[in-house]
Design a protein around this nucleic acid. Structure first.
Length: 117
RNA sequence: UGAGCGGGCUGGAUGGCUGCGGCGGCGUUGGCCGACGAGGAAAGUCCGAGCUCCAUAGGGCAGGGUGCCGGGUAAUCCCCGGUGGAGGCGACUCCAAGGAAAGUGCAACAGAAAGAAACCGCGUCUGCAGGACGUAAGGAUGGAAAGGCGAGGUAAGAGCUCACCAGCGGCCUGGCGACUUGUCCGCUAUGUAAACCCCACCUGGAGCAAGAUUGCGGGGAGAGCGGGGCGGCCCGUCCCAUUCCCCAAUAAUCGCUUGAGCCCUCUGGCAACAGGGGGCCUAGAUAGAUAGCCAUUCUCGACAGAACUCGGCUUACAGGCUCGACUCACAGA
RNA sequence: GGAGAGAUAUCGAAGUGGUCAUAACGGGCCGCACUGGAAAUGCGGUGUACCCUACCGGGUACCGCGGGUUCGAAUCCCGCUCUCUCCG
């Protein structure tokens, strides 16, 4: 999991990112991101709608996404607010697939700095 | 041995590293340690309550709900025990099961006629291509045709009379009661109340996004015999008048978890349940906590995630365990 | 989390106990007419599944799904499924 400091906390923050952000997508996920806040600050949120599945499925997807992001966190450029939106196919995907897609999206957004794997 | 019936329980396990949530303790900016951390349905939101605000929630009407009887409960449309009906060889299961003799409506098509019926037929009279009267035994229609069947009776017929049977009402017997027994008396009334309705009982409205407190901001009305609240109407009643009303996806804190609670046991009761004694504290988030990786193991894991809290109902569910002085069939003693 | 509304043909919809869905009415689509060609207009047709039939054609079922009440249900009652709206 992620510490609270790294999470988007308010509905208003989510709305800000959706309004101002730029998006990219894979079949499993889409990423909306915007440059915001002080340089060292990094905030991320996860959105899983009812189209993905029931409460149990949505909780599982969200937990996997948070775990994957925690693994990638040291490599991510700070100074951004990010939202990962799960698409319906994410319900069937395992942890490795979700992490691979997340890494790909971050690289396309040029937010992944080279570092130790 | 096989096939069933009715309950009850369970819903992968163990360990390591890295993490999450609130709580407690220690530190006192950042941390460290500790125990705890989703369900039997957490679901649907179908009932009933607590709680909060609207008046300390009051009367009438309307509207809504319930509907065999008795009991249980904080309460219920729930539960238990009985009555009646339906199904099953049986254990047992299922049933919105008051009133159609208070009144009204509806019953398409067909049929003469759908409730106090005359089309054909049958009989009598008239004296005739027909008409009048009587008649519900027969035909035909329909889901349903005026209780069934036999005998007497008659012009022909008819509960008109009688026997048996069926139903309804009364009386008697038993039962707190639903209801029931009867060799008694009277009657023959169509169906529909998940049509209006009648009867009995219950029912004010909204919902934790309720609501309370604190703080920031915006807009409007203003000397009004009126305005506002009690979201159907009337009554009744309360509040306001130098303040009142409205808007805001503005924020924080509270509401927020100890409760008709759970476990064991005794007593009363057929039971639901009640009472006494002892023990226990068991999520409380607010973009919303259980995850990631690894190892071992088994029968390879169903439906599924708390959001104010309880009691029920309904629906979903892989498999496993268990109880019964439960049933049937076959075989043996 | 809470409160409410709806589901009828390809689409929008009417029908609220019979005869009666001729699935009305409107849009769309197809064909014909008009035109040099089109638009507009007019006329006709147009649901799905199963069954019968050599052909023409005909029958039955389907009003989101499953039960119930009733002689009879798209309509009344109960239980599900899905969709949409509102409440800070």
């Amino acid at each position: 999991m992620l510490a609270k400091a790294y999470r988007l906390q308010r509905n208003s923050e989510f709305r800000y990112v959706y309004a101002r952000g730029r998006s990219a997508a894979t079949p499993l996920l889409s990423l909306v991101q915007v440059k915001s806040g002080p340089p060292g600050c990094l905030r991320v949120g996860f959105s899983v709608s009812k189209k993905v599945g029931g409460a149990v499925v949505r909780n599982r997807v969200k937990r996997r996404l948070r775990a994957a992001f925690r693994e990638l966190l040291p490599q991510v450029t700070p100074g951004r607010k990010l939202i990962f939106v799960a698409r319906p196919a994410a319900a069937e995907a395992d942890y490795d697939k979700l992490r691979r897609d997340m890494r790909g999206l971050l690289r396309r957004a040029k937010l992944l700095r080279p570092g130790p794997q």
